[in-house]
Design a binder for these strands. Structure first.
Lengths: 152, 152
DNA sequence: CAACAACCTCAAGTACGCTTGAAGTCAACG
DNA sequence: CGTTGACTTCAAGCGTACTTGAGGTTGTTG
């Protein structure tokens, strides 16, 4: 009965995004209210899923700029859309690989029996490799070899 | 023969960090030159591995603030040190889990045959779940079920 | 002695995604 | 009619890790 128009506060409550965030989305061109009632924003019921889509895409690693491109591309240019998504997939793979490599290094550091790991020769060797330009994601990039771990 | 003092430029060249970055490290209390010669910073040879350590720790995911804590804790309080490292490990695990969950969602999106994925019912269902507070890392958080993927 | 490279300081800018604060408007309630 | 609560705008701030620019100094070379 009542028309389905949402105030910014209600939309915020329904989506979990802060009103300031919704205003920010509008500012960067991601979300526009369907109307204004004496200066106040009113959103149609579809706005909820639009915001949901923004939040979802942001969650899976897209920046708001990319979300904007995605929304603009959409069905108009499925190619662009798929390209963006494919690139994000590659980016995620890289992120995972980096975090896993870092995880290995950190795990080794925990296992290191030296009180001051910074003076540990294995740690220093890892630092050396880093200075020599070896990527952290290199499998040899490990802080302490378990075999050599026990202090002499 | 020549004393081993490095200028900021040389230290930068040897470590790969920009001079401005080294000054910044000094500003935040991470790295201090051993002396000044007519206003210019001079670093001892050990500075190279100190910077290497900073870069290494930053690479594996520590913030510069954490690196500072780590350097300060060191052997003084191995407990603190290990706590920090353990926390970072947990953080890395979380990061990996999130990226992997995101990766799954993005992969499903690529597989979706809809031209405009935003109108795809499976995508909308994922958005709904997100609005209902389900975490992206939830295994059910997937965009397109492969079986339901073909458009009617 | 002039030019040049490399250094210096300090302030401000960058990217990202907002939040916060000040100051004001609007509708409803008592 | 005054207060409350929700809204408005606009500017500025936050955190992270630096970079950039302006304006100046120092040391070496020709």
């Amino acid at each position: 009965m009542a028309d389905e128009m949402l105030t910014i506060g209600e939309l915020a409550r329904r989506t979990g995004a802060a009103p300031s965030a919704l205003r920010y989305y509008e500012e960067i061109g991601l979300l526009a209210p369907s109307a204004r009632v004496s200066g106040q924003r009113r959103y149609g019921p579809e706005a909820e899923s639009v915001v949901g889509t923004i939040l979802f895409l942001a969650d899976v690693g897209f920046t708001l700029g990319e979300v904007k491109q995605l929304m603009e591309a959409r069905s108009v240019t499925p190619r662009t859309w798929r390209d963006l998504v494919r690139r994000k997939l590659a980016e995620l793979d890289e992120r995972i690989a980096e975090a896993r490599a870092a995880r290995v290094a950190v795990e080794h550091a925990i296992a290191c029996p030296h009180d001051d790991i910074i003076t540990c020769p294995n740690f220093q060797a890892a630092v050396r490799r880093r200075l020599d330009g070896q990527l952290v994601s290199d499998p040899r990039y490990c802080v302490c070899e378990v075999q050599e771990m026990r202090p002499a």
